[in-house]
Computed example of a mutant assay.
Amino acid sequence: MGWEGKDEVTVFPLMQRYTFWLAARLFLSVEDPSYVAWLADPFQLLASGIISIPINLPWTPFNRAIEASNLIRKESRAIIKQRKVDLIEGKASPTQDILSHMLLAMDEDGKHMTELDIADKILGLLIGGRDTASAACTFVVKYLAELPAIFEQVYKEQMEIAKSKAPGELLNWDDIQNMKYSWNVACEVLMLAPPLQAAFKEVINNIMFNGFFIPNG
Rank of each mutant, 00 (worst) to 15 (best):
I66E: 15
F27V: 04
Y143W: 00
Y155F: 05
K6G: 12
I51V: 09
F212N: 02
L71V: 03
D107M: 02
S34I: 15
E202M: 10
L116I: 06
E152C: 10
D175R: 07
M106W: 04
L87S: 14
S164C: 03
S29E: 06
R77H: 01
L196D: 04
M208C: 14
I150K: 00
S48P: 01
P167F: 04
L26W: 05
M113L: 12
G217C: 14
M208Q: 14
L45A: 09
W21D: 15
I204K: 11
A68K: 10
Y18D: 11
V203S: 11
A135R: 10
L123Y: 06
L39N: 12
T138R: 00
G110Q: 03
S100L: 04
S48Q: 06
D175E: 04
M102F: 12
D32C: 02
A186I: 04
L26P: 04
D32R: 05
C187E: 12
K201W: 10
Q197F: 05
M106F: 08
V36S: 11
G217M: 06
V11R: 01
D86S: 09
D107L: 10
P33Y: 03
T60I: 11
E115T: 14
Y18F: 15
V140C: 00
C187V: 01
A40D: 07
I204R: 13
M159C: 04
F139N: 01
L103F: 10
A162L: 13
P195G: 02
L71Q: 05
